[in-house]
Amino acid sequence: MPTRPPHRAVQPGGAEAVAPARRSVEPGEDPPRPGELICGQCRAGNLPVRRYCRRCGAALADAPVAVRPPWWRRLLARRVRRPHAAGERPPRRRRWRTPRFAVWLVVLLAAAAAGYAFRAEALGAVESVRDRVSKP
C-alpha cells in the first residue's frame, strides 16, 4: 500500500491570495455599452463616474473602457430583439422589409449603369484635359 506524504501545517500569511473566478455577463443583462467601464471581476458594464462595480462591488480604478465596434461591424450587425415587459405590446411589424444588402446592391448597380452610360463623355473630358495640359 502506498504511503501518504506527511501533512504540513499551514503557515499564517504564507498562502497566496487566489482571485475569484470571473463571471461572464448574465443572459438577461445587456453587454457593456461603448464608454462604460468593464469590471475586472464580473465583466459588468458601469457608468464612467462610478468607483465601484454596480453588481459585485469591486473597485473600478484600473477598469478598461468598452470600445465602440468598427463601422462595418455596426453596419452588418443583426438587431437583437429585446424581451417585452409584462403588459407591454410588441410593435406592429411590416410584412415585407427590404434587406440591407439589397439596397446596397441596387445603389452599386445604379452607379455602374451610370458610369457605363456616360463613358463616352468621360473619355472626351479626359482627352480635353490631356490636350490642354500636354506640351505643344
Rank of each mutant, 00 (worst) to 15 (best):
R82D: 06
V25S: 04
E127Q: 14
A120M: 04
E121P: 12
A44C: 12
A113K: 00
S24P: 15
T98V: 15
R94P: 04
P69Y: 07
R51E: 14
R89D: 11
E127H: 10
R51A: 14
R8W: 09
R132C: 06
R100W: 00
H84G: 04
L60K: 03
P12G: 06
A111L: 07
A110G: 04
A17S: 06
N46I: 01
A122L: 11
R93C: 07
N46E: 06
Q41K: 11
E127S: 14
L105N: 05
R89F: 00
Q41P: 09
A44K: 00
R94H: 07
L37C: 02
R68Q: 12
P136A: 09
R132T: 00
H7M: 09
R92Q: 12
L109S: 04
G13L: 15
R55N: 11
R68V: 11
P12S: 10
K135P: 01
D131T: 05
H7T: 10
P27E: 15
R93D: 13
P20C: 08
G40D: 09
A58S: 15
K135R: 13
S24A: 15
P5H: 11
P64I: 08
R132H: 06
M1Y: 05
A122Q: 08
G35S: 09
A120E: 14
A112V: 02
R79N: 08
R43N: 11
A120L: 06
A85R: 15
A59G: 11
V80C: 01
V67M: 03
C39Q: 01
C42G: 08
L108T: 08
R95Q: 11
P34S: 14
Y116V: 14
R50S: 14
H84E: 02
S134K: 14
D131P: 01
F101M: 05
P20A: 10
P34Y: 13
R78Y: 02
R89A: 14
Y116R: 12
Q11T: 12
P32A: 15
P27C: 10
R50E: 13
A61Q: 08
V126G: 09
R55D: 07
S134F: 01
G115E: 08
P34D: 13
R89V: 05
P2G: 04
P2S: 03
R97H: 03
V80F: 01
F101D: 08
R51L: 14
R51W: 11
P20H: 08
V107S: 02
A110P: 00
A120W: 05
V107P: 00
E88H: 10
L76D: 04
V49A: 14
A21T: 07
A19R: 13
A114K: 00
L75V: 01
E127A: 15
R119W: 05
R23E: 15
R100P: 03
L76I: 00
L123F: 09
P69M: 09
